[in-house]
Design a binder for these strands. Sequence first.
DNA 1: TCGGTTGAGTGATTGAGATCACACACAAGT
DNA 2: ACTTGTGTGTGATCTCAATCACTCAACCGA
Lengths: 264, 264
Amino acid sequence: MASPAAAVTTKSVFMNFSEVEGVRAKSAVPYGLPIVDNCMTCKLRGSNFFCALSQPSLKGLDQLKHTSSYPEGAMVFMEGQSPRGVYIICQGRAKLMTTSSDGKTLILKIAEPGDVLGLHSVVSGKPHEFTVETLQPCQLAFIPQDDFLRFLKQNGEACLQAAQHISRDCQSAYESIRSIGLSHSVTEKLARLLVQWASDGRVANGMIRIKLALTHEEIAQLIGSTRETVTRTLSELKKKAIAELTGSTLLIRNPGALQALAGN
Amino acid sequence: MASPAAAVTTKSVFMNFSEVEGVRAKSAVPYGLPIVDNCMTCKLRGSNFFCALSQPSLKGLDQLKHTSSYPEGAMVFMEGQSPRGVYIICQGRAKLMTTSSDGKTLILKIAEPGDVLGLHSVVSGKPHEFTVETLQPCQLAFIPQDDFLRFLKQNGEACLQAAQHISRDCQSAYESIRSIGLSHSVTEKLARLLVQWASDGRVANGMIRIKLALTHEEIAQLIGSTRETVTRTLSELKKKAIAELTGSTLLIRNPGALQALAGN
DNA sequence: TCGGTTGAGTGATTGAGATCACACACAAGT
DNA sequence: ACTTGTGTGTGATCTCAATCACTCAACCGA
């Protein structure tokens, strides 16, 4: 498939920009993405996990990390590789997926800013069990495995934080299992997915509007189905005025009905 | 369903036995299970996780724990409950399962000695997302949530150990997702399960013999199928002289063919 | 010894969804 | 204006396994 795309590190980007345009480093914009280089002053910091560490801990982490930008469609790492370190998503979204021997793909999760990629592989020392591919231009902070483990050993707060983070991954994995394993109809699984997405959408007079940029194919891979059936099911939902997907915006007209389809 | 069975704590068992039979505490055998009450001298200790902690840490943990015995079919805790603490399996096996609203059950994992139950719920503070039911008489060590979290905070080694343990759970969850989500035929999923079991079986002239005590129903719940199809698939495998299940022993006659059926 | 229960084996039917095979819309290069 | 590629919409089949409906064997407690 696609070869792992070369990441553009902040440093090299800085150099390029300085040379070519003679501008200051802070305005570097690789792949149309404004770079954030310092966790301490980062305005994107959410309440998420590592971003939420206390100042001293965060400072320690900040010194170990190394920020890179990736274009859309870049492979951050691949299934079966030994982990080289953890990646924290600062900006952009990426899909975590596995592929079977016959080429079928399953998307485990869409990772978002604040998520840490490869954490449990680094902690357990086992190979990655999924491939990470960016869905958009992304900015990732990378921390080498040994630096990271050393940091965890020396920093109880961070270690517990890490354990909590892994716990969440676990939880979402179990949710996936439930969703995939316990539901019979594709309609049910799709509805469940939409309901899940709905939770971070904008509500306007009883309808929910969500921005997402996934193809039917990718949705199919998320629920373990095929593109055609997703298309059909989606048009079924549209016909029933429950939900419709136009371009990259999903409009949920009847959240209640959707909930019912999702099995509760 | 079944109500949570009352656990017999070591103490009360000791008292009962002393009173009734006048024997020494160490020979107490509730549910036919010889009690092991001290991690430091426990002969069952494997290389697993908490059992593998260094002496001082283990000693600390030993003081917090509280050993109980459970009969077969006991509910240790249930899906949706808030975690009260972690349970470490000293002896016996238990199944971790979820149930859908329409009564369908999915078994996530068969837990064995050394496994820790409810670890990630305790760490993340979220409700259990599965029910644990013993498959045999079991001995479990219980550690209350707050004691446990305090212990982790004060003990870097244990915290990292915990993180590693959760990582493994994660890993096995992802494996399940792959297995359930990426394979089409039931034959494939069943074969994969058998292959997985085969790894801890006894090999004798090219055949593998494994002890397990699961009904067809439970096997079906492990691979997300139905009892009937498991029966059929199993008899198919028997007819092809690949594997057969008689009583509680599984005999794999042709590991290679099984591997092939499993998809690689 | 007898119901009662639980697990296993098997046949017949059926339906959801995978698969194949198209047509069409729309964007991006050249 | 061409091609090329990618995403989507839909019909026609076909297949696997869920479901229903039994029988049979083993075990157990009364």
